[in-house]
Design a protein around this nucleic acid. Structure first.
Lengths: 252, 252
DNA sequence: CAAAAGATGTTAACAATTAACATCTGACAT
DNA sequence: ATGTCAGATGTTAATTGTTAACATCTTTTG
């Protein structure tokens, strides 16, 4: 069916960010390349992708790049972030009240979020906008002052809002982790918010790719014993596994 | 100078949304098309544009399209909104504390906002992200629940935040205006927020294109006598002008 | 001032896109 | 069942845009 194929192609582009016509030709040997071109043309008219020479790109992916350009940050380790996001998704269930932190890892997570009945609180306006496409998700932003580096809201208003809400499950990103200092980040106000979230949430899940291991940032916001699960892209080295076991932390 | 040309090309693309190589060739007759290609390549590497066959597109423009696609809304009356935005910009001065409402008119306004020392409060996450590029603007979001139709935050947290801040100048969008009912909008919570803003702000400026005249939405949030100025794309019909004069409203 | 790095121009080979037309397929009315 | 129609698909040639490689010019830097 035409519509199905187009949907599948769109999915593929959204998840990979980009596709070459060659790839599609290999994937869909039963239709001609002209048909695939027409599919891309169709999706472009829908405003879901942009065609580039030799293929097409996802708009969502492009806006992530745009943010990266603004914040002078590159989207590093995309594969790792996808792995983490997919593992973390499994911890969800419908009807929950969840907190989704800011950062590119959490953005990946948000993009993968199934469209089920959820209450979401986030301090990241870009993540909030990403979630608009999930019709069943109630989206709440903390409010506060926007840090243009991290695209994160923080400050007294954020704090007040979090205090007033109940969170089942908090997905929190960490900029760095080491055994002596625990989970750390680089902004005082963001650390303050994270600490509050971690105190208030029933279960805390840290999302962190392995490149953050054994490094430190100025502000500690959590230790192993404060969290429920730690989701990473690879199996952690032995010493970390041991520490996690001692602290009864689920490793994913 | 190379950098200047590239900057100019980028500006051009950002303002028009898209450019053909042909256009650039006509505009820059003193350099070869290969150089212009390389300029586009450069800008693409910076993540500011995407190259498409025969030219390039602005990322910012693409994300607007994306939003439009999500919200099923078309960006109508773009020209009118640009006229309004440019008129409204003149009311600004550095150091002010301003409120910028949600909606496409306000988005245009935000895109045109000069990069000067300003404190901005907005209930629109997309506008907040747009302002990230203005390094001198302090961006504050109200927080609250996100309405996925209007991309507007509202609710108790938004209200609390606004109560706590002082606003010099509020730029408020109106969905409809009629003499009997005044300025109206379609969402109860958004009307509530607008009313509060209008009470608290020192000066209130309504941004509204002429297509909204003589129509009504369920919730009235202001009357002519509550506002300082009304910015529209064209000269209003006589009866409105007369009413505005009586209420001492500046018409722009 | 010379060397190096960067920007620009020219060309030819290459690759992707378009347009036009032919063909197929499924839905629908008869 | 059959004819008809619209939309989807396939094929090809002509067009157009892109890349790569190299030569030349300009600017920066030691």
């Amino acid at each position: 069916m035409t519509a199905d194929r187009r949907e599948a192609i769109n999915q593929y582009i959204q998840s990979r960010g980009e596709v070459r016509l060659k790839e599609l030709e290999q994937r869909y040997t039963d239709v001609s390349s002209m048909t695939l071109r027409r599919d891309l043309e169709f999706l472009e008219r829908q405003g879901r992708i942009v065609r580039i020479r030799g293929g097409a790109k996802s708009l969502a992916h492009l806006s992530m790049l745009k943010e990266a350009a603004y914040t002078q940050r590159q989207v590093a380790n995309t594969d790792a972030k996808l792995v983490i996001a997919d593992k973390a998704i499994r911890l969800l269930s419908p009807g929950r009240s969840v907190y989704i932190d800011s950062g590119t890892t959490c953005m990946c997570f948000a993009q993968r979020l199934p469209d089920q009945n959820l209450f979401v609180l986030t301090p990241a306006p870009n993540i909030a906008l990403e979630l608009v496409k999930n019709a069943n998700v109630k989206i709440n932003l903390t409010g506060g002052q926007l840090n243009r580096e991290t695209l994160t809201l923080s400050g007294f208003n954020a704090i007040e809002y979090v205090k007033a809400l109940n969170i089942d499950l908090a997905f929190v990103a960490a900029s760095a982790f080491s055994l002596p200092n625990g989970f750390t980040c680089g902004d005082y106000f963001e650390a303050e918010l994270k600490r509050l979230i971690i105190r208030k949430a029933r279960q805390v899940v840290i999302l962190m790719d392995a490149s953050k291991l054994n490094s430190n940032m100025p502000y500690t916001f959590a230790r192993l014993q404060n969290i429920y699960a730690l989701v990473s892209d690879i199996l952690l080295p032995d010493e970390y596994q041991k520490a996690a076991r001692q602290a009864h932390v689920l490793l994913l």
